[in-house]
């Protein structure tokens, strides 16, 4: 109280230090992961890591292509399941249902978004995997099960973000379109969805990030074979599960190779983040 000015400066500086924590943590994480992962990538060549198909760490063969493909495939599968269902639910709940229904269902869906991913994985293991094994054959632990589980897992995220961005479209847009004689669906398709587009895309990218970064649920249902999957029913290993599966026993170069896996995952995620930022910025400019 005595010297408010001096105090204020002190406070400002300490707050700045605190505020730099997030970026410093990001920097430390980046440095640590790269420090552990880059030397081995340099030693065996980036090309061998990115394009090699053989993952036999005990034979010094560190091909990550099956895992990169695995991650992308499973994420794509998750989006193919999660996006249509999520968008449809969001459109239905905002535009086609009664207010009461959406008022009850939206919170329910949001409540579900917090369910731990291991629970999704567990139920996948108990119900989905045996079902796929018995109906389609194969081991059941497969690209398909992993995609479905991840697709369901990202549903709440996609639904609630989509609902928010559809609701953010001003009613005057809708009224204008309806006044021109458009049906409700035509209004939604030609006016509301385009107006909400960047929000919807941001939601999808967020869901995509969650799917590609998920570890435990995927390990439980994907089968984890380090091989390019030959079909949707073949087991698959993602980048994340490669790390989590082998970290415990790995030593020496094997462990460094897992950090290299982390580096590649990190780069993929950063690219996604960049895209998400780009769309978000586009939206705020509007």
């Amino acid at each position: 109280m005595a010297r408010p000015k001096a105090n204020d400066r002190l406070i400002r500086i300490s707050l700045l230090v605190v505020a730099l924590s997030a970026i410093s943590i990001l920097a430390i994480i980046t440095i640590f992961i790269f420090e552990q992962g880059l030397p081995i990538m340099a030693k065996y060549g980036l090309k061998n890591f990115l394009l090699g198909q053989d993952w036999f760490p005990s034979e010094k063969s560190f091909g990550l292509l099956p895992m990169i493909v695995g991650s992308l495939l499973v994420t794509l599968g998750a989006l193919l399941i999660g996006v249509p269902l999520g968008l449809a639910s969001a459109i239905f709940l905002t535009e086609f249902s009664t207010r009461r229904v959406s008022r009850i269902l939206k919170p329910v869906i949001e409540l579900l978004s917090g369910i731990p991913s291991v629970v999704y994985g567990f139920l996948g293991l108990m119900f989905l995997v045996p079902f796929i094994r018995e109906t389609f054959g194969g081991p059941g632990l497969s690209v398909l099960s992993a995609s479905i589980i991840l697709g369901i897992m990202i549903l709440p995220t996609i639904i609630s973000i989509s609902i928010d961005s559809i609701r953010a479209v001003p009613d005057s847009y809708r009224e204008g379109s309806m006044a021109l004689g458009a049906t409700k669906w035509q209004t939604v398709r030609m006016v509301v969805l385009p107006a909400a587009r960047s929000g919807l895309v941001a939601g999808i990218i967020l869901g995509m990030g969650r799917a590609i970064g998920e570890t435990m649920a995927v390990i439980m249902v994907a089968g984890n074979a380090a091989d390019l999957p030959g079909s949707l029913l073949a087991p698959v290993r993602t980048l994340t599960s490669n790390i989590a599966l082998e970290m415990a026993y790995a030593s020496g170069e094997h462990r460094q190779a897992l950090f290299a896996t982390g580096v590649i995952l990190f780069v993929i995620i950063m690219i996604l983040n960049f895209l998400a930022n780009l769309t978000a910025r586009k939206q705020s400019r509007k």
Partner: peptide
């Protein structure tokens, strides 16, 4: 600062695990 926070938000938990372990 915002960039840091946003990127941090997107990092998968397994990377945090690796980092915390090291």
């Amino acid at each position: 600062i915002r960039f840091g926070a946003e990127c941090l938000a997107g990092i998968p938990s397994i990377i945090f695990g690796l980092f915390g372990f090291i």
